[in-house]
């Protein structure tokens, strides 16, 4: 799956969690500045696990992976099974 498709899916999920318009979500903004809290973020992690088959929660959740949706999508694209 390419990075742009991943970003679209992540934006849709975050928009759902935050009750926002997906278009209002920037791919360059850090996730904690979007208004996600622990519970919403865990929901996003579970979505990523189901959608992209990657268990990010067991990777220690290093902040570098979540600097922005771009970084996160890159991380997913790198690790996602083909």
């Amino acid at each position: 799956m390419d990075k742009d498709t991943i970003i679209i899916q992540l934006k849709e999920r975050i928009a759902f969690l935050l009750d926002k318009d997906p278009a209002a979500i920037s791919a360059d903004q850090p996730l904690h500045e979007m208004g996600l809290d622990s519970i919403a973020f865990v929901d996003l992690l579970v979505f990523i696990e189901k959608q992209f088959k990657i268990a990010l929660a067991s990777s220690g959740l290093a902040q570098e992976d979540f600097k922005s949706l771009n970084c996160l999508a890159q991380r997913i694209a790198r690790s996602a099974p083909l």
């Binding site: 996730l31 904690h32 809290d37 622990s38 973020f41 220690g60 959740l61 290093a62 902040q63 979540f66």
Partner: peptide, 16 residues
Amino acid sequence: IQERAFAVAGYLMFAP
């Protein structure tokens, strides 16, 4: 505290 939480428990893991 938020920075400590992210470093100790993981990104956005303030509640745990």
